[in-house]
Amino acid sequence: MALDTAPPATTVGPAPPARTVEPPEPRHFSFGRALAWTFMVIVIVLSLFPFYWMLRTALSSNNALYAGSDSLLPVQPSWGGFQRVFGLQTGQEAIDAGGAGQPINFWRYLFNSVVVSTLVTAGQVFFSAMAAYAFARLEWKHREKWFAFFLAGLMIPAIFTLLPNFVLIKQLGLVDTLLGIALPSMLMTPFAVFFLRQFFLGISKEVEEAALIDGASKVRVFFRLILPMSTAPIATLGILTYISTWNEYFWALMVSYTDKSRVLTVALGVFKSQTPQTGPDWAGLMAATLVAALPMLLLFMVFAKRIVNSIGFSGIK
């Protein structure tokens, strides 16, 4: 259910071939280069500043923000924002500190987000890999026609299937459940099938045939040979799927109504709408925003190279 601007183009290249030897960079100083670097520095600052501002605000006391709106450091540093987000303040304490005072517990939403993202990622990658293997390596009638049929799915904008899918999930009695949120994208996406097939086609046939001659079945070849040989692209696909599921808002907003199935993105919206009469609890809101963003930022720190290199056109073209 990727609603994001772009995912279909992301191509998770089978480990980009040796970019280790970089072309020598011109080192001479010139006015143009200085200007270009200045521009890039501005771009980086604009990209990263909002993250610092979340942290700075989350660590401030909400009531002090009014007086210290121009302070670059936290104003009257306090953990209050985070305590409200995790339900560690009593209602009255929270109200006194500028919060809404309604009970809210982000641990629950964090848990829900983890469950939904894990279900979608595990299911989608595994089932797409199975289908991709059938399209890449098994011999069967009308294989290419079936594959073209799957690919046609790339043309359907995700947004169009949301309403009818909601009706279906409702009929299945899965509204307001984590499974209901996960199910539509748990079995496949055309992109995942396409991408993995592309990779499987590149695996040498000889190894596979050697195993078949030794009497291994094709099922065994898939599990014992193909999957282990494809850990790199599978990991990349998995990380990207996890991130886009974590960040999904529209679909989750339709399906979840109560804390039972509320994921972080939806909870953030709800938290925002509980504005206290005295004005928004910006410290609490920014703490919540940071809690929602942090897991993906940590994931990015660990896998930065893989994620950055995965964006390109190598598989599409």
Binding site: D4, V43, I44, S47, L48, P50, F51, W53, M54, I243, W246, N247, E248, Y249, T265, L268, G269, K272, L285, M286, T289, A292, A293, M296, L297, L299, F300, I307, V308, I311
Partner: peptide
């Protein structure tokens, strides 16, 4: 440069 893309639209909107 890619970092902002890692957070959701909701997070971007909030901040």
């Amino acid at each position: 440069v890619l970092t902002p893309y890692l957070v959701s639209n909701v997070v971007a909107a909030m901040v």
